[in-house]
Design a protein around this nucleic acid. Structure first.
Length: 434
RNA sequence: GCCGUCGUAGCUCAGCCUGGUGGAGCGGCUGACUGUUAAUCAGCAGGCCACAGGUUCAAAUCCUGUCGACGGCGCCA
């Protein structure tokens, strides 16, 4: 019976014989003794292989096996202060299943090299920790929505229309026609709510933005929700509650991983203790003006400005009511809002420690004339949105939704410099391999 | 799209300013060592100096162009 390494790193196993299997993480040897440190998905443990304790050909195998060789080991667990982690296995059997070539990833590595060798780098302790946290985050999203009466609803990935701006679409050959990879599920979600009421999904999203930043991927996962009858004030509260739940699940399940990533846990814990504030775009600008920043009403918040606003907060913040003119066509004007110009019933959620946008959402416009006007503004033909307009003709209701950038959320939760580390195989403007 | 940085051994880099026989560390291989934590010590192998032109007696080094990678901005999640 093979056991997980994490399981045997305790006093209960001290002195007992165990078998493990995994890969050589580090190794060091002399003519008579070898110290391979083994890893498996659960953890690492040092193994001590002494000549004479096992057949000579197995000792020779231990001496010859390079990093990442796959091995089955039998031996006795011993507490030993000289071993990293406090426990080691004194080997009596060492069966090399697959000898590894010289491993290309060593101690001095450039970011570029690690991306070139991502298929191997995901074995690293750092990537394993991040992928385990990702597992918790995505699981929490499903759990949150299912426990709150939402149905999972899957939209098509191949879509004929734009939604967030035509220049950022990936075009796909579709028999003798052309179509595009999904930028959002939104148009289809707005149809789905008339059947299911409250829906959500977690799905891949494709945007051909030419963004070369540490916060952008061309292929990323978006966790979206859409709900009939829901209006802006309510939907922002749903978003806050969802994010809070995700953070609590990560803190509950992934403390060891966060510590391995050297994440300051207090930055996450404070988010469970306090409510997330809601401010308007206009109020945000006032804060920036008080800080001496030059800002102009009517322009979108830039990275610098989002960072400036978030200096005042240590939890995520919802910013509502951005200027109507700079928003996507489906975000409706809020006639009752007090602002220097027309503003939309929309919101972003900004993360602390830098002001990254982790959520974007809005109420959806139900006025066919308004929708047509703003589609034309964007150079689109409203006739191509027949099905979308139909939704306003057959029992229209107020409704709202938002999308969470899964990788952005993970990046902030893990405290990572670069979003490319939040996903096993990142797709960027310049990389589609491995 | 704009701005910036960088392409030299399998990896990480020095050398370039001031042109003159290509260097180090790590990794690999051989050998020594029965407690290593990025082991140590001795030796060996390993290079179209991104590519293409140009200047020069002579180019990794100077000039021009191309390609590639990375980062920042804008835009977005």
């Amino acid at each position: 019976m093979f056991r997980d390494i994490a399981e045997i790193m305790s006093k209960d196993f001290d002195g007992k014989e165990v078998s493990i299997r995994g890969w050589i993480w580090r190794t060091r040897g002399s003519g008579k003794i070898v110290f391979p440190t083994m890893r498996d998905p659960s953890g690492v443990i040092q193994v001590t292989v002494k000549k004479g304790n096992l057949p000579d050909e197995q000792f020779d195998g231990a001496l010859r096996a390079l990093i990442e060789s796959s091995v089955e080991i039998t031996g006795t667990v011993k507490a030993d202060d000289r071993a990293p982690g406090g426990f080691e296995i004194l080997a009596t059997g060492f069966n090399v299943v697959g000898f590894a070539d010289a491993y290309p990833i060593q101690k001095d590595q450039s970011e570029e090299w690690l991306r070139e060798n991502r298929h191997l780098w995901i074995r690293s302790r750092k990537m394993v920790a991040i992928m385990k946290i990702r597992h918790t985050v995505v699981g929490a999203i499903h759990q949150y929505f299912r426990e709150h009466g939402y149905y999972e609803f899957d939209p098509p990935v191949l879509q004929p229309n734009q939604c967030e701006g035509g220049s950022t679409l990936f075009e796909v050959k579709y028999y003798d026609m052309k179509t595009y990879l999904s930028q959002t599920w939104q148009l289809y979600a707005e149809a789905g709510i008339f059947a299911l009421g409250k829906i959500y999904d977690v799905a891949p999203t494709f945007r051909a933005e030419k963004s070369k930043t540490s916060r952008h991927l061309c292929e990323f996962w978006m966790a979206e929700m859409e709900a009939a009858w829901m209006q802006l004030p309510e939907v922002t509260e749903v978003a806050k509650e969802e994010i809070k739940f995700i953070i609590s699940e990560v803190l509950k399940n992934n403390r060891a991983e966060l510590e391995l990533l050297e994440r300051d846990l207090s930055k996450l814990e404070v988010c469970l203790e306090k409510p997330f504030p809601t401010i308007t775009y206009t109020e945000g600008l006032e804060m920036l003006k008080k800080d001496g920043m030059k800002v102009e009403w009517g322009k979108d918040l830039r990275t610098l400005e989002e960072e400036g606003i978030m200096k005042h907060f240590d939890t995520p913040v919802v910013v509502t009511h951005y200027p109507k003119e700079i928003m996507a066509f489906y975000k409706p004007t809020d006639p009752s809002a007090k602002a220097p110009g027309p503003v939309a019933k929309c919101f972003d959620m900004l993360a602390p420690e830098g002001g990254m946008e982790i959520v974007g959402g809005s109420e959806r416009d139900t006025d066919i004339a308004e929708l047509s006007k703003y589609l034309e503004r964007d150079g689109e033909n409203p006739a191509n949105y027949q099905f979308y307009m139909d939704l306003r003709k057959y029992g229209s209701v107020p409704h709202s939704g938002y999308g969470v950038g899964v990788e952005r959320l993970i990046q902030w939760i893990c405290g990572l410099d670069n979003i490319k580390d939040t996903i096993a195989f990142p797709r960027t403007t310049t990389r589609i391999t491995p």
